[in-house]
Write a protein that binds this DNA or RNA. Structure first.
Lengths: 151, 151
DNA sequence: TTCTATGCAAAAATTTTGCATGTCG
DNA sequence: CGACATGCAAAATTTTTGCATAGAA
């Protein structure tokens, strides 16, 4: 993935928030953008420390928080107290179908649902910043594996 | 809350899953049903151990897993890596508006959104078991406090 | 030069587990 | 009686933090 543009925006973001522009921060953005789309932090820490020796666990945690504020990382949660993070550059919001058997994550976007959410917020005078919709269940393949008949 | 019926169903559930019916399990269901609707586990542990001395932390954690399988507890997550659990007897599914300033949780249910979700699952041949929709933002009161003008 | 970021290791917070003992069926 | 549940404390997991040092503005 080409992250040149994204890095520039991140630099602006850091300046605006009076934070320093460091090698770690920019390279972490780069690494994460080119790593798996969905990841757990510890897995990422292991990967980074094995391959690049770029940043410590503490810095990775701290930078991920920054990147969440910046808006390119979101947390989506799955069962078992595991937190899965998603790299998600801003344009492409979407929601998730999560298979509880094979842990596959399927993305979808439905404009009607998005619109309905806006209406709900309006009716509660709630000012939304972001949202998360997760549907848990069994994917097509796992239904077959488990011999579940379609209705 | 009257939990007689719920307890009977829980007993059936335990039998069906070849698990034992114990005092701890039944009383924990009772306590949780009458505790706050939204809670963190540690807070619950403290409460139970202060007031009733009924079960150990380990048993509480284990029983909550059981109750999640049984279906009366769901986990909804909020920011800051805190996991909020919700007691939610089966009939009353709903989703959440979560205020990121005062942490208030507002429940809502929108049938159209529910229907659209079913359609999405169908089109992916996905067999849903449950879902979770969380909209984060600022509640009416916090917008006022923070002097945010309505559009 | 000044202030913030980083690394390290220790601490905190949260959840799970092994094992001896108690309880249910 | 046999199998499973419980309590305890220890371990595992995940995340945060204090402080000395390095690096950016």
């Amino acid at each position: 993935m080409d992250t040149k543009r994204l890095k520039e925006e991140f630099v602006d973001f850091l300046k605006k928030h009076h934070q320093k522009i460091t090698k770690s921060r920019l390279e972490l953005l780069d690494i994460i953008a080119n790593y798996k789309k969905h990841f757990e932090i510890e897995e990422l820490v292991t990967y980074i420390q094995r391959t690049k020796k770029l940043a410590s666990r503490a810095t990775i945690y701290r930078t991920i928080k920054l990147l969440m504020d910046f808006g390119v990382i979101k947390e989506i949660i799955k069962q078992n107290n595991k937190t899965i993070y998603e790299f998600c550059p801003s344009e492409s919001h979407h929601d998730h179908l999560i298979c509880t058997s094979c842990n596959k994550i399927i993305e979808f976007l439905n404009e009607d649902i998005e619109k309905l959410q806006e209406e709900i917020c309006k009716s509660h005078k709630f000012l939304p910043t972001h949202h998360r919709l997760e549907i848990f269940g069994l994917c097509k393949e796992c239904q077959k594996k488990l011999h579940i008949k379609e209705k």
